[in-house]
Design a protein around this nucleic acid. Sequence first.
DNA 1: CTGTTAGCGCCTTCAC
DNA 2: GTGAAGGCGCTAACAG
Lengths: 336, 336
Amino acid sequence: MATTKRAVTIIDVAKAAGVSVSTVSRVLNNKDDVAEATFEHVRDVIDELGYSSSLAAKGMRSRSTNVVGLIVPDVSDPFANKVMRGVNQAIVEHHYDLLIYTNGNILDDISAAREQQYVSLLNNGLTDGVIIVTPSIGSFSSVGPVVAIDPHIHHPEAPAVISTNFKGAVAATQHLIDLGHRRIGFIRGRADLQSAIRRQQGYESALQKAGIPLDPALMVNGDFTRESGVPAAHQLFSLDPRPTAIFAANDQTAFGVLDVCETLGIRVPEELSLVGFDNIAEAAYCNLTTVDQFMDKMGYIGTKMLFDMIDGIPRQEYIYKIETSLVVRGTCSAIS
Amino acid sequence: MATTKRAVTIIDVAKAAGVSVSTVSRVLNNKDDVAEATFEHVRDVIDELGYSSSLAAKGMRSRSTNVVGLIVPDVSDPFANKVMRGVNQAIVEHHYDLLIYTNGNILDDISAAREQQYVSLLNNGLTDGVIIVTPSIGSFSSVGPVVAIDPHIHHPEAPAVISTNFKGAVAATQHLIDLGHRRIGFIRGRADLQSAIRRQQGYESALQKAGIPLDPALMVNGDFTRESGVPAAHQLFSLDPRPTAIFAANDQTAFGVLDVCETLGIRVPEELSLVGFDNIAEAAYCNLTTVDQFMDKMGYIGTKMLFDMIDGIPRQEYIYKIETSLVVRGTCSAIS
DNA sequence: CTGTTAGCGCCTTCAC
DNA sequence: GTGAAGGCGCTAACAG
């Protein structure tokens, strides 16, 4: 790798080509008011010098960069990962490039100020618009458009894609109730996320509608990570009588429960029925019954919305709601 | 979302705080030559206005941004995805941020010029260094350091992380031979990638060492995608006699083979033994015997190397080789 | 068709 | 300790 001290700039190209800087700029941006010969010549020089314009400088001056930004808390997180795939697909279709920004740590509790900062960072010249995954604030001040995926707070005028967490949780719980379960444990998600709260409400609602009294002992804390599912499961299993079913606020937490079942020798679904939420890729392989909230689609739709906003196409609706859907697989059985 | 027309700039902050732009800049960069009171005051104003400095402008002027760049062909690609995780982990440990750039299409055959362009794009002010996944060229001209993960060409002086593709392929093929297989099919990877070529060489070498003659009919084309595994498998299965085993150049291709087995009713491993390469997440769930090349570790190590280079720490070795390792699972059986 | 000029927002000397 | 001026690489008017 030749770590050249200085990058070759538009000025270098202009000099080498014997034209002015603006001509080079015109060639760069495919303006059609350049003589054929000049155009070709400049192109050649650009290739020869291996020149590439700096996104930084370019974005600072002009308004359009043809790239969209995506802010995720953590690239490894399955939720964020699926959203990324959806976004990826959308940008390919629109011939945009994608810039993903992350500080890498989903538990690093990004403050609202920090989120706002990231949005500004990208939308201040680098990108034409940004998508932010699970932001804690619903509204951003930004030069370019912003679409939130599963935001904590729903601001009526803030474009967002959300899923029907409540309905999904009701469906999951109802499924367990239909199978005859009465003692159904619930492992919470991150308390600061709207989606987690709605899932708990769905759980409670389904129980109450079925006339099953709420038992606080059956509701334990978790934080959406696999690790948090472990102590939660232990806590639930130490109850007497043990719950016959568990609804975990997301798939990863459910996997934590599965880990505990393995070590404790509890058979699923014979001795314990289990439902997750999200339908991440691993869920299919592990045959986990769960609720699909189509995260990839959320990313895809969100990006489409963003493109409309970038193009100045007005939308009638700024909140796009995606219907969740129960995916019945092998981790639940009827009570004997 | 308040799509403010204009972003709040350092000038706005300066005015609001009643100080000069340079003072604000000093506060922003935590310089210690600012009076305590002024510092606090400016900080407050910054928070109040929700100001955040533009990465674009900042990077253009100063040399350090505290973010590393990662260039991947496609965010959805399992290989790239695993590398991303490794990089993600490394940047968390070093308190850096991460900027991932992608054009989203792995098959869009990125030209060398394009790769060089992406590298410049990021290293021209936005990032302190970049990691590029499976580049077709081995050497880049760039302001900042560049580390390649699994590059097509190994340039002796270009920092790169590679895995022992040849040895891994030998191990995989040998495993099949040890189980008694003689007619072993091979599905190639993308012909333009060094790793694919090395895997084929490993396959051929193992066969020859075992005294098994090479049969061109047993070697068919693929391109590392699951889709490409389908016609390849059909082609192999149409042979008479049919191969008793297949070594696919990567896991995704192997999944394509599995898809065909399902439709054709060919039982694995009873009627066909199958080995993949990469050990992507799905491989574990599908019980696929494969070769682990520790892609996450490649990303992690590569990022570590990059940090050393950013910090100006000299390395004795610029090519880091990661040993592959055969993972025996359930898709192979001894020939009866 | 092409060159000249004026900033975009920020950081870095250099004065005070 | 703080402010003023210059310039990073680029594009967008405006002239010619």
